[in-house]
Simulated scan of single mutants.
Amino acid sequence: MQFTTFIAAAAAVAFGANANVIPRDDARLGQFRVFGADGCSDLNYGFYTVDQSDANTCHEFTGVPASPGVKSVVLEGMYYPAANGCNFYIYTNNICTSGRRSLSVSSCNDVPPPNANWASWKMDCSSGSANGN
C-alpha cells in the first residue's frame, strides 16, 4: 500500500513539473557563462542562453552583483545550424558600442584594463540563418 502511494505521488510530481514547461518558439543559438573574477573560474554567476529572438540586439548583463560585476566571460557553445553566420560579442559599455571583443567557443575573455567590467553582449546574426536568411 505504501509503495503504491509513493509511486502515485512521484507520478503526480513528475506530471506537474512537466505541465509548467514553456516551449521555446525560436532556435537556441548559443550559451555563455559570466564570472565576477578574471580567469573564468572564480565567482561563477551562471550561464545565459541566447535564442533567435535575442539576435541582433544589445543586451546588458542582468542578474549579476554590481560589485564586482562581470570580469570574465566564456562562450560555452554555438548551436549550429541555427547559429550559422552569427558572431558573439561582448562590450565594455552597456549600449554595445565600446570595447567590442569577438568570442570564440571555450576561450576565456577577461575585461581589458582600464575597464572595470564587461557591461553588455550581442549575438550578431545580420547575415546568418538566425536572421531568417
Rank of each mutant, 00 (worst) to 15 (best):
G128L: 08
M1F: 14
I95G: 07
Q2P: 11
G39E: 10
I90P: 01
F3M: 03
G16D: 02
Y79Q: 09
I7G: 08
V105G: 06
T49I: 06
F3P: 00
D26R: 11
G69C: 08
E76R: 15
Y80L: 11
L75E: 01
G63R: 04
L75P: 02
A11T: 11
W121K: 01
I7H: 05
S106Y: 12
L29C: 06
G85N: 13
R33I: 01
A19E: 10
N109G: 01
V50C: 04
N18A: 13
P81G: 05
S67R: 06
L43I: 14
S127I: 03
N84R: 12
A116H: 10
Y48A: 05
L75T: 04
D42Y: 10
C40K: 03
F6K: 09
N131W: 10
P113C: 00
R100Q: 14
P81W: 00
A83K: 02
G132Y: 15
V13E: 00
D26C: 05
Y45V: 04
M78P: 03
V111G: 02
G63W: 05
Q2C: 11
V21I: 15
T4H: 04
A12Y: 03
P65L: 12
G39R: 04
N133S: 15
T57S: 08
I7D: 05
G63K: 02
C58M: 10
A14Y: 09
M78L: 15
Q31W: 05
A10E: 04
F61Y: 00
D26Y: 09
C96P: 01
F88W: 09
G77V: 08
R100S: 13
A66C: 04
C58K: 08
V34T: 14
N44C: 13
V105C: 07
F15V: 14
I90N: 02
I7A: 12
C125P: 08
G46S: 12
C125R: 01
C40I: 02
D42V: 11
A8I: 06
I7V: 15
P113N: 05
R24E: 14
M123G: 04
C58P: 06
A27Q: 13
F6T: 10
L43H: 13
L43C: 09
K122M: 15
K71H: 09
N94P: 03
S126A: 09
S104H: 01
L75F: 06
A82S: 11
F15K: 04
G85F: 15
D38S: 12
G69E: 10
N115V: 04
A119E: 11
F88A: 01
A116K: 14
Y80K: 12
F35S: 08
S53Y: 07
E60H: 00
L29V: 10
A82T: 01
P81T: 08
S104G: 07
A83F: 03
C58G: 09
Q2F: 11
C125F: 05
F35A: 10
N44S: 14
W118I: 00
D25K: 12
V70Q: 00
T62D: 14
A119S: 10
N87K: 13
Y79A: 07
